[in-house]
Each structure stands twice: as C-alpha cells, then as structure tokens.
C-alpha cells in the first residue's frame, strides 16, 4: 500500500512497535470482538480547527465513508472514535478531554492535521497545544495541513486494520494504565481545573 498519505513515520511506528507480542495471545472471542469493532465505527467528530472542513465530504455523498461501516453519531456516549480535527486551544482542550472521558471503551482517537502532531503552523502560538498525545491517548495520526478526505479515509482503513490485527496498544489502555502521566500533563497546562466549569462562568458574573 502506498504510504504517502498517512504519516507512517516515526511517531506512528513508535505507537505500533510497542505491542507486537500481544497479537498471538488472544482468544477466539477477543478476535471476533476486534473484528466487529473494526467493522463498525461510530464517530463523534470534534471540529476543533480548520481540518473540520474536510470531514463533511468524507461523511456525505462525495466520499461516503458509510461504505466502511463508519457512521457519525451525535453524542460521545455512543461513539467509538473521536476525530480531533486540528489545533486545540486551551479552552477547547478541556472540552476534548471531557468528551474523551465520556466515551465508553473500547474507544479510539484519530488526530487530524499537523497541528495535533507537533504544533503545525501554530507552533509558536501561546494558546494552542502542540502534542495531543500528551493529554489523551491517540491511536492514529493523519498528517497534512490540511489532509485531504482520501487521507482521512486511509487513516480509517489503517485504524481498522490495526484494530482487527491488534497491532497497536490502544490509546485508551494507555490512558487508563498511565493516567497519572496524562493527568500531570493536563494539570501542568490547565491548572487544577482540567474540566470546564460552566456554573461559575454564568452564576458568578462579577469575576473581575
């Protein structure tokens, strides 16, 4: 397969290399479960940045990703996959984390665009994060600024392959097992309140 679209580079390899041994130690039921969760994906598309503009063509008539069993849903409770499309500002990051933690396992994250990998063209901005994987578990990077819909589709196909064959350690497992690391990163950046506090903003109008 052509490797041009997806960033099949060091980051992706390092994600995949960690867990080559897992594959063989699976029971038949686990394999079947993997197959089904690869075949049917419910996506909550979090349009954080400009990359969000490439998602509607993927889900509608032009590229029709429903062929692959990928369907958009409206709430994170029902979703398996979250697409973080582009840069996250600090304010957005709180919502992204909250959305991520609402999803039920097994859950996966696709990070779309260079901004999520290493800052992209917003590398010197005070208000956007640089590496998404420091704050939540990421399973698939799609590089490009912005990636074409074909690239996103190939990202989906690669993710399905790796779920089916169990070649990566899923991000949610890392997030669960290594929660202290992720929480430390979140708190370093966002302070103690890593979750958005909606009540305070509206009830206490005189915060200044």
């Amino acid at each position: 397969m052509q490797k041009g679209f997806v960033a099949y580079n060091n980051e992706q390899k390092s994600l995949e290399a960690e867990t080559e041994g897992i594959k063989n130690s699976q029971t038949l039921i686990q394999k079947a479960m993997n197959w089904f969760s690869a075949r049917s994906m419910f996506v909550v598309a979090y349009g954080t940045g400009c990359g969000a503009i490439e998602m509607p063509p993927v889900f509608t008539s032009r590229y029709d990703i429903e062929r692959l069993g990928v369907v958009g849903v409206a709430t994170p409770r029902q979703a398996d996959i979250m697409i973080v499309s582009g840069y996250c500002s600090l304010k957005t990051l709180r919502r992204v984390i909250r959305t991520y933690e609402q999803m039920s396992e097994p859950k996966y994250v696709i990070a779309l665009g260079s901004c999520t990998i290493n800052g992209g063209m917003y590398w010197d901005s005070y208000n956007t994060i640089k590496k998404l994987e420091e704050y939540i578990g990421v399973d698939m990077y799609v590089a490009g600024c912005m990636p074409r819909p074909e690239a996103l589709i190939e990202g989906f196909v690669k993710l399905q392959e790796s779920i089916r064959n169990n070649t990566i350690q899923p991000g949610y497992v890392k997030y669960r097992e290594d929660y202290a690391y992720y929480q430390a990163n979140q708190e370093k950046l966002l302070g103690k309140e890593t979750q958005p506090v909606y009540e305070e903003d509206y009830a206490g109008m005189n915060l200044s």
């Binding site: 089904f36 075949r39 008539s61 029709d64 429903e66 062929r67 069993g69 609402q102």
Partner: peptide, 27 residues
C-alpha cells in the same frame, strides 16, 4: 444511500453495529 447517490453500507452492517455495541462497556 442510493437515493443520496452513495453506495451505502453492506446489508449486514446493522448486525455488526448491534453486536459491537453488545461488546462495549457502559460508562
């Protein structure tokens, strides 16, 4: 899907969805 001009999912897609959902956690 055909009415929209798409190919649409496979016929068994709804089974896959339901079986996958039965294997998922509830949070």
């Amino acid at each position: 899907a055909r009415v929209h001009g798409r190919f649409g999912p496979s016929l068994a897609q709804s089974f896959y969805d339901s079986i996958k959902l039965f294997t998922k956690d509830t949070s």
